[in-house]
Structure formats: structure tokens, C-alpha cells
Design a protein around this nucleic acid. Structure first.
Lengths: 340, 340
DNA sequence: AGCAGTATTGCAATCGATTGCAATACTGCT
DNA sequence: AGCAGTATTGCAATCGATTGCAATACTGCT
């Protein structure tokens, strides 16, 4: 079945309504904006005509005149694996939360995956006046592009971890606390030879590692191996643990930097005949929707994604309005299940 | 740390370059568009100045003049569960694929979650000239809003199942085939008392059910229970199976309309002491990234999400260009793992 | 030098909505 | 009737980029 396109009659413009109502477009514009300067009778007549003609304001034209875009850009700053877009339920939740909150503010959401090169962020979004502000999810291994973006714009908020030389506003989970909670829990469960799985080049992961490291130190313990370069994917968690076990590394507790990594790790452990949590206890991070339904149900550090999305939007909106804004860290909590 | 906003100097405009170069803005515009009517020397001089001033075209203004938006709107048409945004790895992959493909075409992606009411789709996106075309993921229980959208616009593509009275372009997986493949596989595995989990009010699910139903009929089998109203969530799969088992329903095979449902179902089975696949074999749909890492690894019908995203974009772009376009069904394949 | 013919450039309008200011219409009063 | 004062409305410019058409500059020729 072929869907043959018809020419879209470009819709109704203010000029059309003006002609129909026998007034000037200024009057129509004011009437539609409910400007009390316009006589109530005229106003209602014009509004009726607008309804009848199914008039919808041309957002582009209005934004041009008003020198704003009424749009926030969202950049998912995550590297792609094998040309495949990074896929994490955590992201989906975050995007949803942001979209809903922007909707509350009557703002549009311009979505950009990492397909746009960081050096083009500015040109693509801000300089070309496409967005009033930018939300970036993830700082990446190097936050240089983010700092540059902030320099050229006045409304950038990133989801990530607080960095010393960051000039942009950061909203993120208390990753350090999360790392501590997870590790203390593993210690309490009797683990003594612990493994951290994650790529500490990512600031957020580094904070998680730091909390983990300090919690171990509290008890005079040290980490078996920590600099495991692991992306956020299930596959990488699996691969790394297989490798480590093949090398004969001995451990009884794993703190994984994400639930995806944790799930991959558990698969590797199972494959090598190790039981979770009996032989190795595992704690993840994120508490994605599937965590309680994994086998074994995953102990995880919960990030409050919906609150995070909401705050990200509120910060960026405040900056757009010219208000001054501070970074914010959101509490994390440990959700204990059977994997530990 | 407070991030104090500075006023954004609105960037450089063509007029600025014109002043600087001592020419008219027409000349600048033409030079920047590499119009050969402009002397090559002038052209290069102007381009150099533009680079120096870090000029970026104002997309809004250009689009207004050119009567286009160079933007495609993406609507995730999925109901929310408990006010939480629908979250499925499948969606994330799809969004990523669409974003990447649009990026190839130099188009922007305007994202709208289901927070916008369907009756507002048109006003929000098309009438207000915000998007040249619309991609809708999911037809929902009732595709009336979609049909209306198509009527008012000339570029709507939906991801879903072919419906008789649909006037819009549809791209989707071969759900019927998927249902058949899954069911024939279960039959071959020796299942005779089969259960379908899914909400057949959704056209896509209905197709899956139909394939399932017909495959059963081929062997003279019938479905134990089919009209299980199950959303796409893990929780609902879990809940339904718990209820059915509590009612004492007896079955040895499950075809779940999504991997999420399948994973929930498996949890319920396990909780009730049933083994997968020994007591009950389970097949899901989607083949989300976690499927092979679930325990047991999930047999599932794979949807080619990346191809799907690509085709969705190509269709909508073709329609925007005024070309005529046909609906398209993408092959599905069964990926057999240990859950069956 | 003068002219036709081409090469370059600029004027002015346009896309649609908004708004400061001026113009007009109306009101109520003496 | 005439006037001040208020209530309504419209003119014209503006946001920034683009483009048809006209104007100007230049080229090469006799």
C-alpha cells in the first residue's frame, strides 16, 4: 500500500486570521496572546476564528523574533561499542524523566546521540541558536569538550561527578557514598579479597572506586585489582571476569560499576563454576528495573534517576533564565538482594 | 560552587560579517553557500572572516525563510506505568538507531515522550512547523490518533503492525512470522499445553499471537489461555504467571510477547518451584541485549532494531521530499538459547 | 573611445510573529 | 458642541537568512 503524500498547506498564519477578521496582524497577535489592550469582543472573535482555522503558532518564527529557542538539547555522551549505540536501561529512564520534566516547562527536547562529535556540540546546538541550554549525560573520559561548551554558552548542565576544574554545573549521584555503602556491605558479608570492575577514567566510576577503596582501607583491606578497563556493557563485564579467572585470580567479592557489568560478571562466574553469592558476592550500581528479576536478584546501589532528570532540567531552566545555579549531588542508597 | 551565567552575545550574524567584509548580506549569504556567482576571491575572504568570527548559521531563521524545519519528531507512544516512563532496552536501541540515521541526513531529532497527549501531537509538532515529519514508535491500543495525524500532515511513519484501516506508512517486524517461529520451536521441544503472555490489544502483539495461534492449529493444538492483559513490563509478566499458577493452571510452554514479560514470567516460575526449561519452556520477543545473559539464557525472537530505525528514517525522509512510500515489514529470526 | 556581453554585487522583499510608538476612536464631562 | 482623557487599533521595524531582479563593474573587441 503506497501512502501518497499531499502538499501540506503550510497551515494558517496570523495574516490569514487578520484578513478574515478584518483587522491588522498586530491585533491578531495581541488577541491570541490575550493582551488586555485589545477589546474583549475583538479578542474573542479573533480567538474563535483562530480555532476555526485551526491556527497553530509558527514556533520557529516566534522564537526568531523572541530570540530564544524554547528548546533544550540533550546529548548522550557515551562512546559507541562496535558502531552500536550504547544501550542501557538506565539511560532510557533518564531520557524519559528529562523529557517529561521539560514537557512540564513547555520546552522541547532536541536529542543528539554521541554520533555528533564533541567538538561539534557547540556549533550544532548553541551557536546555531537551536537550543537555549544543553544537558549532557556523562562526562566521558575527558570533560574538555564540556568545559569548552560551557565557555561558549551560558546554560550547560552535566550528569556526572564533581570535578575540580569543571566550570559547568554538575548534577549527579553520590557515587562515593554508593561505593562506600556497597563495599562496607560486602565486607560485612565476609568478603576479604575484593575486585572492582569499572573504568576509573570515567569521573563517576572513579568516585565509586574511591568510595570502595576508602571503605576497604577502613578495614585494613586493599583491592585485588582495580584498574579493570571496563565499559558499561554486559559483554565487557563478562569478558573481564573470564579473563581474570583464567589468569587464576582469586577473589570473593565484586563491586561492579554498573548493573550491566555486574550481570556480565555473574554470567562469567557461573560459567566458571563459581556460585553467587556463596563463592563470590556481587554488588552492582544503578539498580536498573531488571535488577530484582535477575538470577540471583542483584544487590545494587540505587541512583534516583527520576529525581536526577528533574533536577537537571530545573538547573538548566534556571540558567536559561539567567539565574545562578549550583551543582548538586543526589543521595544513593544500597538495595540488598541475593547476589551478596 | 556557583556557576554564574554570562550573557550569550547572541553569536555572529550574516550582517556582522557583511559589515566586516564591506559587502552586502546577500553577498555574504551567497558566499557562505558557495554560490559560484560570487567571485572566488570575495568568497574566500568572506569565508575566512566567518571562520574567524566563529559564525554559525541561525537554523531557525534559515528554516523560516526556507519553509522547512529540517527536523523530525519522534514520539514514543507507550503508556506510562504508575507515572513512571516506560523503560525498555528495546526502545533505547531504537532511539539510538533513529538518532544516528537522522544525523546522517543532517536532520535534528525532536523527542517527545508519551507525556504529550495524542490529541496534541499535531499541534505540538506539525502545525506549529516544528517538524517536517513524525516517527511514532508504537501504535498503542488504538491507532486513531495516528490516523488523524496522517490526515493533517504528509509525513508520518509508525513502527508497528500493518492494520487494514491504517492510512499512514508502517514499518515493523514480521510479528506473525516471529510468533510462528517461536511456537513451532516450542512444539518441537515437546510443549503441548501452551500459554501466550501479552496484550493482544496492541496490534503488534496481536500479530504475534496470531502467528502463535496458527502454529498451534497446524498441530491441532490450542492455547490454554491467551487473553492475558499484560503490559510490556517485567512486573506484569511476573504477576500474571504467579496468578495463573496460583489458580492452578497447568502449562509446559510460554510464548511471551516481549523479553521483559518472559523474564518476569521466569521469575514467577522459579518462585513457584518450576524449572525452566525442564518444566516450562519459555520464549520471549525482542532479543534485548541482556537476553543471552539472563539465567537461563533467553530464547527469543530477534527484531532487527537498527535496520528498523534506519528504514523508519528513510521512509520519513522520502515522504518529506514528497516521494511516495510503501509500508515495510522486516524479517524476524528465532534465536534459540537455554530457556526452551 | 565606444560598445556588447559577461561577471559581480546589492536592493528589497520574504518567511511569521511580535511590539514600541503613533494614530484613531470613543467616552464622559462641562 | 467641544475637549481632555482613555480605550483600541494599526504602522512599521525587527529577528536572521535567502533570492529574484536590477544595477553596476569589468572584459575584450572593433
Amino acid at each position: 500500500m503506497a501512502t501518497t503524500p499531499r502538499k501540506n498547506p503550510t497551515g494558517t498564519s496570523i495574516a490569514d486570521i487578520a484578513r478574515r477578521a478584518g483587522v491588522s496582524s498586530s491585533t491578531v497577535s495581541r488577541a491570541l496572546n490575550n493582551n488586555p489592550a485589545i477589546n474583549i469582543t475583538t479578542r474573542e472573535k479573533i480567538q474563535a476564528i483562530a480555532r476555526e482555522l485551526n491556527y497553530k503558532v509558527n514556533t520557529g518564527a516566534r522564537n526568531l523574533r523572541l530570540q530564544r529557542s524554547h528548546t533544550i538539547a540533550l546529548i548522550i555522551n557515551a562512546e559507541k561499542v562496535d558502531g552500536q549505540t550504547f544501550s542501557d536501561p538506565f539511560m532510557m529512564d533518564m531520557i524519559g524523566a528529562i523529557a517529561d520534566e521539560l514537557n512540564e516547562h513547555q520546552y522541547s527536547l532536541l536529542y543528539s546521540s554521541s554520533a555528533i562529535k564533541p567538538q561539534d556540540w557547540c556549533s550544532h546546538l548553541l551557536s546555531s541558536q537551536r537550543a537555549d541550554g544543553v544537558i549532557v549525560i556523562g562526562q566521558g573520559r575527558n570533560d574538555e569538550p564540556l568545559r569548552k561548551l560551557q565557555q561558549e554558552s551560558n546554560a550547560v548542565v552535566a550528569w556526572g561527578a564533581r570535578l575540580d576544574n569543571a566550570n559547568y554545573c554538575i548534577v549527579g549521584s553520590d557515587n562515593y557514598l554508593g561505593g562506600q555503602l556497597a563495599t562496607r556491605h560486602l565486607i560485612k558479608r565476609g568478603c576479604t579479597r575484593m575486585l572492582f570492575l569499572g573504568d576509573v577514567e570515567h569521573p563517576e566510576i572513579e568516585r565509586r572506586f574511591h568510595g570502595y577503596f576508602d571503605a576497604l582501607a577502613e578495614q585494613g583491606l586493599s583491592s585485588r585489582e582495580h584498574h579493570v578497563q571496563s565499559a558499561f556493557s554486559i559483554e565487557s563485564g563478562y569478558q573481564h571476569v573470564i579473563e581474570l579467572l583464567t589468569k587464576g585470580l582469586d577473589f570473593d567479592g565484586i563491586f561492579a560499576a554498573s548493573d550491566n557489568i555486574a550481570m556480565g560478571a555473574i554470567n562469567a562466574l557461573r560459567e566458571k563454576g563459581l556460585r553467587v553469592p556463596l563463592d563470590v558476592a556481587v554488588v552492582g550500581f544503578d539498580d536498573i528495573p531488571i535488577a530484582p528479576y535477575f538470577n540471583p536478584p542483584l544487590t545494587s546501589v540505587r541512583q534516583n534517576v527520576h529525581l536526577g532528570g528533574k533536577i537537571l532540567v530545573q538547573k538548566v531552566m534556571a540558567m536559561v533564565k539567567g539565574q545562578s545555579v549550583t551543582s548538586e549531588i543526589i543521595k544513593t542508597e544500597l538495595v540488598v538482594r541475593s547476589s551478596s
